[in-house]
Design a protein around this nucleic acid. Structure first.
Length: 933
RNA sequence: GCGCCAGUAGCUCAGCUGGCUAGAGCACGCCCCUGAUAAGGGCGAGGUCGAAGGUUCGAGUCCUUUCUGGCGCACCA
């Protein structure tokens, strides 16, 4: 039998079927780097419309994890899809460098190496510098590791010039912003209870807390009233034999030395009871609960009264030499306890607030190391508060004040890194006030922020608005200061009289020094040097008679969130990229983090938000829906995934996520993504393989000459529609829609319908036959367009295909979308419906022995002639040898052509097949193609 | 405790302002092709739309309650 294989125009391409991603991706990366792709785009697009996108700084701690991967790939699809729209997209990646986690680990290592003892012996400045140097090295190391990982994900960004919060220029920008906020009247220093990590001797931000189960004592204590007669009067009694007590409940016995008051709910009912022989007072509604809790046997109610009547009564502190008062408090609940709340303004936020109102001081007898100072009774001085719990209980037991004592488990805030329990402790801290009227305009930050959230920012998904609003409504003043070494110093000084010196001008002067020498200067230089550029005479805010030489440096550093939150200023503004950014895109946890803490400083300094839209994504969880994190040890390693699947497959997976929800992750999902990737790759390969011999020409223009009634016209219209939908989806950040549309186009429109149908003409028509050329021209446009549509998701593969078409010196990422539209014959949907019916009929014919569609002929019912315009393509479209249209037919008729002659070249049983001169049966078309008579 | 989100075929997800026998892809089963070949094509099976009430001529889609999972916030004196 004659072999016609080498007379066919079979696909030919250097675009390999096997992607070999883990090897070829790094090569692509190196190529982009060598050609200076980022800078080149910046140059070429200098005057193009500008898309401002701002990268939130990840913390430079450890290698990248799956969460980083999702975040960075989502961002990259934003960047690359805008680039493909022809825009200029400067994109500076950044890192958060300072902060406790790094310092904690570094110090831990110093301790392990035994170096910490030497350091502790050094002067404070020198010790801090040693720690800072080690921290800086640590941060630098991980920035390198992370940058490499992020680049390996094929993300497009200015990795040559990233921003780092520890850069001198960045630090100076942060300080200048701080000066603006001081000027706006938002910064103040105040004694306030804050979450205090005893282990790290520092105040913690809300974001640095973790709630964990912990066992604590739960005690009921009688506080003896000072004046029995007054109590009797409050209950409407004539007199009382014994001196009654106020029963309080607490789970932190160690805070009792700081007790200054008892709070009651003014509207609640309180009962005077005789409980197992002693008279005590507690909320009526809690009587039964307390009786059960403390195991009291005999309880007799003597009288009842309203809480408000108790306000003002005095009691004796059970072991300190002082009296306290009963006060009213709206925060008192009848959930737990006795309805009488032990109040220590130095150890609790609500206590402190009530205390402010009642004129109580924020008394805090606990030192930064968690031990008592000398203002407490002698037996407690120098004692660690956790040890004090038992001592206090013993003391109360001995003195007869303790009613009951049990141990119980509850959720308690812990320092997120050291995992040790946190306490509330009043200290001098720097704050940004959210309820202070600003000098300009008189609004508060909270008002401005709520207004911005309400009407000035877009949210994707929309419910982010509620979320941020809720947080802003309830957030307290922002505690800016930390008592650590690794961070940007708050450039405040103390004066000889103990007061604090910090003005906008002094901060700006220090900022200049920091800009030159970095924040290390604060530790290595004298106040005089730091303030060399400062002239008290020109500073209206300077204290009278200020002597710079008499100043001493203070050593608080900034909350790292303030540094990260000033990135719009230190990056977008400082680098001339402009504010506000079009978009911030981060995990939904950043509602309380970066989003909020960028918004507040920006509003304080400029009055406007630093972003126009906020897009958030959920967290990556494992197959069972559990959070994936390093600390839980159930995380998949990005490095392994890249090795096993390649960045492109990972990116394809990310592009298909419903990212606003939690993101379930399993290797099986990546395997599936890999299958989809191969499908797309093979489809692209088929297109590339079939257009190699097409003479060069205007890609769009030539395709536009396609016959709208031809199958190619149908495919072209589909292509135009898909391109429009995908581009629109990208601009809406609806990556999943784009992903779906691209896949369906490749899988269905191309692979299953068009490519399958076009095979015959592509392979068997004479190479330059007009019919074949038309198909090729549309295929070429499809390939060109597809490369561009895929570029944001599969930057490597898109570039590989593009180079396969245009040669090794080009890059798809320098290109932008082709603009075209095309309308096919309006009858195509009906033709496709007819095709579906035909395929079903063919399936049924298999039972009768017609298993190969090329052994079949079809008679399609066409009552109104709707199929006539497509007659030429119907056989190919259905994969059969012949199609007849019959206005009278009721349903599809499959004709068995197994006895009909078969063309040896095309394998079709066409009507025109007949033996040629050499006796070989060929159809007319094939005979012509090989020049046979 | 409060707020928010999700719960549709084995898996990942569509189903807009309520309206024909609830869709897609993957996976699965059977079959074809062997000239995209560690490819390609066809057909098929598969769902009480978390549960229970209610509104309606009609509800996956609206209301109420409830269960499960997740996230956030608060409280823990």
């Amino acid at each position: 039998m004659a072999d016609f294989k080498n007379t066919l125009n079979l696909p030919q391409t250097d675009f390999a079927m096997k992607a070999n991603l883990s090897q070829s991706e790094p090569a692509t990366l190196a190529r982009w780097e060598a050609m200076g792709l980022y800078d080149r785009l910046e140059r070429e697009r200098a005057n193009a419309p500008h898309f401002r996108f701002h990268d939130g700084p990840p913390y430079a701690n450890g290698p990248i994890h799956v969460g980083h991967m999702v975040n960075k790939v989502l961002k990259d699809m934003v960047v690359r899809s805008r680039l493909m729209e022809g825009m200029r997209v400067p994109y500076t990646p950044g890192w958060d460098c300072h902060g406790l986690p790094i310092e904690h680990r570094v110090v831990g290592e110093l301790v392990k190496k035994g170096k910490m003892k030497e350091l502790d012996a050094l002067p404070a400045d020198i010790r801090r510098m040693a720690i800072r140097k080690a921290c800086a090295a640590d941060a630098t190391k991980f920035i390198g590791v992370q940058a490499k990982g992020m680049q390996r994900l094929l993300t497009h960004a200015d990795y040559a010039q990233p921003y780092m919060t520890m850069d001198p220029a960045y630090e100076a920008g942060t300080l200048q912003l701080f000066a603006d906020l001081i000027e706006a009247g938002l910064v103040f220093r105040q004694l306030k209870p804050v979450h205090w990590s005893v282990a790290n001797r520092t105040a913690l931000a809300e974001a640095e807390l973790e709630y964990e189960e912990r066992e604590d004592p739960s005690i009921w204590v009688d506080f003896e009233s000072s004046d029995a007669a007054a109590v009797a009067k409050a209950f409407g009694l004539e007199s009382l034999d014994a001196r009654p007590s106020f029963m309080i409940w607490t789970t932190t016995p160690w805070t009792l030395p700081a007790n200054l008051a008892i709070a009651v709910g003014p509207t609640y009912r309180y009962a005077l009871v005789r409980m197992d022989g002693s008279e005590t007072i507690l909320a009526t509604d809690l009587l039964a609960k307390v009786k059960a809790a403390v195991g009291a046997e005999n309880v007799e109610v003597l009288a009842e009264t309203d809480g408000v009547k108790l306000v003002g009564l005095a009691y004796r502190h059970p072991f300190c030499e002082r009296e306290g008062r009963v006060i009213g408090g709206e925060h008192v609940t009848l959930e737990d306890g006795t309805g009488l709340v032990h109040t220590a303004p130095g150890h609790g936020d609500e206590d402190w607030r009530v205390g402010l109102r009642e004129g109580l001081r924020a008394y805090c007898p606990v030192r930064d190391d968690g031990t008592y100072d000398d203002t407490v009774p002698e037996w407690l001085r120098g004692v660690n508060i956790w040890d004090a719990n038992a001592m206090v209980i013993r003391r109360l037991t001995e003195s007869g004040h303790l009613v009951h004592h049990v141990m119980f488990n509850h959720s308690y805030p812990h320092d997120w890194r050291s995992k040790t329990p946190v306490i509330f402790r009043a200290t001098e801290q720097w704050f940004i006030g959210v309820d202070r009227a600003m000098k300009q305009g008189g609004h508060t930050l909270r008002q401005l922020a709520l207004e911005a959230v309400e009407s000035k920012v877009r949210f994707v998904p929309e419910w982010g608005r509620n979320r941020l609003r809720g947080m802003l409504e309830s957030r307290p003043d922002w505690c800016l200061s930390r008592q650590r070494a690794w961070g940007l110093p708050i450039p405040a000084f103390s004066l000889p009289d103990g007061s604090t010196f910090l003005t906008p001008a002094s901060v700006r002067a220090v900022a200049e020094v920091v800009k030159q020498r970095g924040s290390d200067a604060w530790f290595t230089e004298t106040p005089a040097t730091l303030l060399a550029g400062y002239d008290p005479a020109k500073d209206p805010a300077a204290p009278k008679g200020l002597q710079v030489a008499s100043l001493e440096k203070l050593f608080d550093i900034f909350d790292v969130w303030f540094e990260a939150g000033s990135s719009w200023n230190s990056v977008l503004r400082a680098r001339g990229q402009g504010v506000p950014a079009e978009l911030y895109l981060e995990g939904s946890d950043q509602h309380r983090g970066w989003f909020q803490l960028s918004l507040l400083p920006a509003l304080g300094a400029t009055g406007a938000p630093p972003f126009k839209s906020l897009v958030t994504h959920g967290f990556v969880v494992d197959r069972d829906g559990r959070k994936m994190s390093k600390s839980l040890g159930n995380a998949l390693e990005v490095e392994d995934l890249l090795k096993e699947f390649g960045a492109e497959v990972c990116r394809w997976w990310v592009s298909g996520l419903a990212y606003e929800n939690d993101i379930r992750m399993d290797k099986a999902f990546l395997t599936a993504a890999g299958e989809a990737y191969r499908k797309i790759r093979n489809t692209l390969r088929f297109l590339l393989g079939n257009i190699g011999d097409l003479p060069k020409g205007d890609v769009v223009k030539e395709a536009m000459a396609t016959d709208p009634a031809s199958l190619d016209g149908w495919a072209l219209a589909e292509l135009a529609r898909v391109q429009g939908e995908v581009r629109d989806a990208f601009t809406r950040h609806a990556f999943r829609e784009a992903h779906q549309t691209i896949f369906d186009f490749c899988n269905d429109t191309l692979s299953s319908v068009w490519c399958a149908a076009a095979k015959d003409r592509l392979y068997c028509d004479r190479a330059d036959a007009p019919r074949r050329r038309q198909t090729q021209r549309v295929m070429r446009l499809a390939a060109e367009s597809l490369c561009r549509l895929l570029a944001p998701v599969l930057p490597h593969t898109a570039d590989e295909a593009f180079r396969s078409m245009h040669g090794p010196e080009v890059c798809v990422h320098l290109a932008s979308h082709l603009n075209f539209s095309f309308t096919a014959h309006a009858g195509w949907p009906a033709a496709m419906t007819a095709r579906a019916a035909a395929l079903k009929a063919l399936e049924e014919a298999k039972a009768r022995g017609v298993e190969n569609p090329l052994d079949a002929g079809l008679t399609l019912p066409d009552p109104d002639g709707a199929l006539k315009p497509f007659a030429a393509d119907l056989a190919d479209l259905c994969g059969v040898s012949r199609v007849k249209l019959d206005p009278a037919a009721k349903s599809v008729i499959v004709t068995d052509l197994r006895e009909a002659p078969r063309c040896e070249r095309s394998r079709r049983r066409d009507e025109s097949v007949r033996p040629r001169a050499d006796g070989v049966p060929l159809s007319d078309r094939d005979a012509e193609a090989v020049g046979a008579a």
